[in-house]
Simulated scan of single mutants.
Amino acid sequence: MNNIHGIDLNLIRVFDALLEERSVTRAGDRLGLSQSAVSHALAKLRLLLADELFVRGPQGMHPTPRAMELARPLRAALVEIATALSAPRFDPSTSEMTFVVATSDFYIGGLFPRVMARIRQEAPQIRLWLRMFNDLNLVEELDRGTLHLVVGAFGRIPARYRREPLIGVEMVWIMRRGHPAASSPLTLDTLGRYPHVDILLSGRAMPDAAAMQDQEGLERAFVTSDPTHLEGLLREAGLSRQVGATVPLILAAPPLVAATDMVALVPRSVAQTYRDTYDLALFDSPYPRPPTQIDMLSHNTYGAHPSVAWLRALLLDQLAAQ
């Protein structure tokens, strides 16, 4: 028989049981089938394979040479199928999986070194591919399973995604320590007088892009400083906002601020890390500004796989340990 489409998987199960039990009755008991059902399946197999397969003898059913030839590959195939259809398993200590995570330069440098250190301890053969999410189509890649996780700031998300809060990021204003306004408390007047460095997490969006943009039902933060809110406050005070530079990376802001009279809003941890390197002055916001909520997104289907669930738990654990 050359046409695999003529084979019913249940026939292979009957063949394997007969090979093991050497009895139609015992094979039926093992499979939960009647004796007549096993005999009928054996008749089908004999017809399909053009061989008797089992010959009745005084001590039961004896396999023919053709049956013995088929025994090992068919049993291995049954084991492979059973393994494939069983609940997914994941052992980080032996896995060679590559995880793909999209995020910003801030988290690549701030969170993932600790995550990678933990992975090297628990799963030394796993690879982490960290991708800048600036110009990725996150919806398309999450839906295709080519992205396992996304870490960033989001508004509304499609129902097919899972959102897990990671951390609230406190933002501060920075300027160079020798800045004309560095010796006084930061005010709205200062923010209206000096140009800003805007951080636009995209290489394609226009410089005046809205802070939150919709990508096929996924609202994603593009501009870290929420300029619309600040511009409204400045307008009420009779002031306006000037933009001196727009950059695609959070970590690009400190050196630009250090070399000019521009100001920028950045995560506090970034400002503290580079305070001495770039001789920066740090200021709390002069207007109420809640921390920026950073979430982890995964697809409800792909994210439920034990491997991705392990990585999700690892990230949550690392942030909880801070």
Rank of each mutant, 00 (worst) to 15 (best):
Q121F: 13
T146N: 07
M175C: 10
M175G: 04
L319Y: 11
R176V: 07
R241I: 10
S184Y: 02
Y194Q: 02
L186E: 00
G168S: 12
R162N: 02
L201H: 04
T277M: 09
H62S: 04
L49C: 09
T292Y: 01
A77L: 07
L18Y: 03
S93T: 04
L42H: 02
L85R: 07
Y194R: 00
A264H: 09
V150Q: 01
S39G: 09
T273N: 11
P73E: 03
Y278T: 09
I119V: 12
R193Q: 03
G155H: 06
T187N: 00
Q272P: 13
S184L: 01
G109M: 06
G32S: 03
L280D: 02
L70A: 03
Q121N: 05
E164R: 08
T246Q: 04
R204L: 10
A37T: 15
R235C: 02
R312M: 12
T146P: 02
F133C: 00
N137A: 15
L31G: 06
V197F: 10
G60D: 03
V151F: 14
V308R: 12
R268F: 04
R66L: 15
L49P: 02
Q318S: 14
A87E: 14
I250T: 07
R235S: 11
S285D: 10
F15P: 02
T83W: 06
P290S: 08
A117R: 13
D189R: 00
L234W: 00
T146I: 06
R289P: 04
A117S: 13
H62Y: 08
E231I: 01
L142M: 08
I7F: 14
L70P: 01
S95P: 10
